[in-house]
Simulated assay, not measured.
Amino acid sequence: MNDISVAIADDQPLILAGLRMVVESQPDMRLVGEAGDGAQAVALARATSPDVMLMDVRMPGMDGIQATAGILAAGVTTRVLMLTTFDVDGYVYDSLRAGASGFLLKDTGPEQLIAGIHTVAAGDMLLAPVLTRRLIEGYVHRRRVVEGRPGPLAQLTDRERDVLRAIADGLSNVEIGRRLFVSEGTVKTHVSRILAKLGLRDRVQAVIAAYEYGLVEPGRPGA
C-alpha cells in the first residue's frame, strides 16, 4: 500500500506542530503541506491532492467548514478529517454536510488520530464514538423532515433500506454482510447504489440521510 499523503490546516502554530509530529512519526504517512487558514487549505488541496486533510474548524477568514465545501467543489478527491476543541452540535453537522469524512476533538490521543487518518484514507466514515453520534442524532432530530412526506428514500429497494439502516448503525461492509447473510461484494454494490440514488458522497452523508429521512430513530437500540 502506498503512503498516505496528509495535509494540515490550522491557524495555531502549537497545534500545527503537534499534528505535524504525529503525522511524521508514522512510517506509512507523508506530510505534503500545511495551511494557516481555509483559503490556503483549499489552495493546498488543489495543488497537492493529499489523501487526507486534517482541518481545523475555526480559522480566520474562510473557516474549516467553508474550506471543506470549497475542496469538494473543486473536485479534489481529498478526504477531510475535521479537528476542533469545540464540541458544538452545529459544527459537527455542518462539517459533515459540507463533505467532511469525519470529526474528532483535538483532545483525541495520538493513537486515535492515527487510526482516524487510516480510517478516512481507506474511504470509510469516522464518527467519534459516543460524542459525534450523540451530536448528530440530536441535531438531525431537530431538522427531521415531516414524517410521511415523500422523500428520496422512496427510490430505494427494501434491501437497500436494510443496508442503509446498517450503515447508520456504524457497521462495516463485512458486518453488514453477516447481518443480512450476503457477501461483502453484494454489500458494496448496494452501498454504491444507495449513494448514487440519494446523491451522497460517502457513508458519513448516508448516516445523516438515514436520520434526516426518518429511516432510523435517534437513541434507538443499536444506533
Rank of each mutant, 00 (worst) to 15 (best):
K106E: 10
L171N: 04
N2V: 15
V6E: 01
R203Y: 06
R165G: 12
A122I: 10
A39Q: 15
G75V: 02
R144F: 03
V130M: 14
L200D: 03
G36E: 13
G18P: 02
N2L: 15
A196H: 11
G38N: 01
A121Q: 05
P50G: 12
P110M: 03
R30W: 15
Q66W: 08
M62Y: 15
V145S: 02
L131H: 15
E175C: 14
R79Q: 07
I208C: 04
L164D: 00
V32N: 01
S101G: 13
V120Q: 00
A73M: 09
V216A: 04
A100R: 02
D162S: 11
L171S: 04
T48A: 10
D169H: 14
L135W: 04
R220A: 09
G90C: 09
A206S: 06
I15R: 07
V22M: 08
D158I: 13
G75M: 05
R144G: 02
G75S: 05
Y139P: 01
I114C: 11
G18M: 03
T78V: 12
M59R: 05
S25H: 13
V163K: 02
L104R: 04
G116L: 08
L104W: 05
G116V: 10
L113T: 02
R201I: 09
K188Y: 03
G18T: 04
P150L: 12
E175V: 15
V88H: 09
V52M: 10
D63P: 06
L127A: 09
R134Y: 15
V191L: 05
P13E: 08
D89C: 06
R149K: 14
E111S: 12
G102S: 03
L195A: 14
R143L: 08
S95I: 01
E175P: 13
V32E: 01
G185E: 14
V187M: 09
M29D: 06
T108W: 04
R161L: 07
Q12I: 10
V204L: 09
A35H: 07
D3S: 15
M29V: 10
D56F: 05
S183V: 12
L81G: 03
